[in-house]
Design a protein around this nucleic acid. Sequence first.
DNA 1: CATTGATAGTTACAAATGCAACAAATATCC
DNA 2: GGATATTTGTTGCATTTGTAACTATCAATG
Lengths: 145, 145
Amino acid sequence: MPQNDPLQIQDFLPYLLNRAAEATSLDFQKAYKDRYGMLRTEWRVLFHLGRYGDLTAKQICTMADLHKTKVSRAVAALQDKRFLERTEVPADRRNELLALTKLGQSAFDHLHQEATRYNETLLASFSPADQEALQRCLKQMANIP
Amino acid sequence: MPQNDPLQIQDFLPYLLNRAAEATSLDFQKAYKDRYGMLRTEWRVLFHLGRYGDLTAKQICTMADLHKTKVSRAVAALQDKRFLERTEVPADRRNELLALTKLGQSAFDHLHQEATRYNETLLASFSPADQEALQRCLKQMANIP
DNA sequence: CATTGATAGTTACAAATGCAACAAATATCC
DNA sequence: GGATATTTGTTGCATTTGTAACTATCAATG
């Protein structure tokens, strides 16, 4: 049984994933930070509402695996910026349904387009087989179906 | 030219990478957080010193792509916990060479073993081809040679 | 060698995060 | 139907991070 070389830091997946995540996130941040004054979590929440329709905060927590505190503050910030509105759900007044405003919708439309373009550019440098392997492995590690 | 489906959040690489990075990092954190009281950046710095020998803070900044502030604080914390010592470099007194203590070395030995095991377990669920594709794509996105 | 500029590292302050405690509404169980 | 538990969401406080300003040392240029 051969003794392998000692693990290098750049082969340690949590490290490698963090570096790749930070590099790409900081890169894409250029699309929303200055223009819309959003933070990363706000952009994530906006994406969910724009792409998947009106949701409650709890639903976003579950879908995005975000802590309710983080979502609560992102929602408040998006509301301050007039990107979304809350409407009470009479059936269960603990819930508040979150919906994008016209402004929020147009920001989403633009950013979703940018995200699509960015993603395509990133993926374009990999072979189709690599793209497929990458997505499959990442989803498994992230516990995403 | 076919119009693809609108991009899903779980196919957006910065998001997917962040989720995978968080999931694996939180998982591996179990190895060092309670037992050694380290934060993620401290563990990273420890790894560099243990794996690559004595380094200056600046060298760690460059290698790990970390801001000097973060490294400065991680080094101070590791020093407080007696995991490393600083020695002045007479040739250039701006530099301080960082070296693990016996305690730091033994923590590294243990954690490096844990990291190796953790990494192997993670990778074991992927085919060799997938493993190779994953590492290649991640390194490219992270700008790591 | 004196002035200016660059580099290594620290610190101060503001912003963001995590965690626990909290309030309000609903569900459960006797 | 009333006590208790659970769920949704917010708030307060401590910790962590990011940014910019700072100190100290060295390099370069006249």
